[in-house]
Design a protein around this nucleic acid. Structure first.
Length: 276
DNA sequence: AAACTTCGCAACCGCAAGGTT
DNA sequence: TAACCTTGCGGTTGCGAAGTT
């Protein structure tokens, strides 16, 4: 198992992505997919390493990314899955459609963990002491509070580094759908992008499927970006069909995955019971 | 109103797994 | 089968925004 040297850093950009870079990446992936991340930036004319492109796509540009606050249900699911799976963020993310492992990891570290710690302390009879008093998120999030928080549209940060503040669009994807169809193949990823990039209709359907109120979606989508890059029209159905046929039998075993999820969750429950 | 503190999150880093040659 | 290559993952960091003093 060798290890490829990380991207040669000379001449490569780092840090926040510019809208132009985003657009270039989206456009390239729309046209060619991403069979080879390492070669992608070169072909796409980006001064980034492949790793950076991949992360940007997966965590931010993928059209099926769901943004905005986590719902109470999602947070609860994360907590439960974390009990079962530990820090396997990608596995957890697979159960949360539209959420990325990075995002889940962030949420965990920023407040779920604290919440649990505080709850544990409270349960242990120790007074909760918090030095911080930041209205935004300082208080431990009780489930009800979490729910309230979750339904509050997130405030966009206009000054954020990237102008593509949020896609706000979702799609039940092949890779990270509720059916937990995990996919790592480029073809499937391309399909994912096709599916996601496809159409707002689909995305809206997916939103409905996932039972998330549209108010949870951030209003701060930079529509100009999506319209200027014509993301919704980027992948025509022909492309998609082609890619679907390429992926062929990769309608992965959602049944299996559901089974294992169920098992894990049940195991978690049983463990909880055991603790009790 | 300015300085300071805290938080959220995008992005980076390094490692490991798995595929290919 | 060993070396190489690419991708994926988890931990961590840095920066900008928001809140507090």
């Amino acid at each position: 198992m060798g290890r490829a040297p990380c991207c040669e850093k000379e001449g490569l950009r780092r840090g926040a992505w510019s809208p132009e870079e985003d657009e270039r990446l989206v456009e390239y992936i729309r046209r060619h997919g991403h069979p080879n991340w390492r070669a992608l930036p070169k072909h796409a004319g980006l001064l980034r390493c492949g790793k950076s492109c991949r992360l940007r796509w997966i965590n931010y540009l993928r059209p099926d990314i769901k943004r905005g606050n986590f719902t109470a249900d999602e947070e609860e699911l994360i907590v439960r899955l974390h009990q079962s799976l530990g820090n396997r963020w990608s596995a957890i993310a697979a159960q949360l459609p539209g959420r990325t492992d990075n995002e889940i990891k962030n949420v965990w570290h920023t407040h779920l963990k604290k919440t649990l710690d505080d709850e544990r302390k409270a349960a242990a009879g120790r007074p909760q002491t918090r030095k911080k008093s930041k209205a935004k998120s300082a208080a431990p999030i009780a489930p009800a509070a979490a729910a309230e928080r979750a339904t509050t549209p997130s405030v966009a940060s206009p000054g954020r580094s990237s102008s593509v503040t949020s896609s706000g669009v979702t799609c039940s994807t092949v890779t990270e759908s509720a059916a937990a169809v995990s996919s790592s193949s480029p073809d499937q990823a391309a399909i994912t992008s096709a599916c996601g990039g496809h159409h707002k209709q689909q995305q809206q359907l997916a939103v409905k499927e996932e039972s998330f109120s549209s108010t949870e979606l951030p209003a701060a989508i930079d529509e100009s970006f999506w319209s200027s890059t014509d993301v919704t029209g980027m992948m025509d159905l022909g492309d998609m069909d082609e890619e679907l046929s390429l992926a062929g039998s990769s309608s992965v075993r959602s049944d299996d995955m559901e089974f294992w999820l169920k098992m894990l969750l049940e195991a978690g429950d049983m463990r909880d019971l055991a603790v009790l």
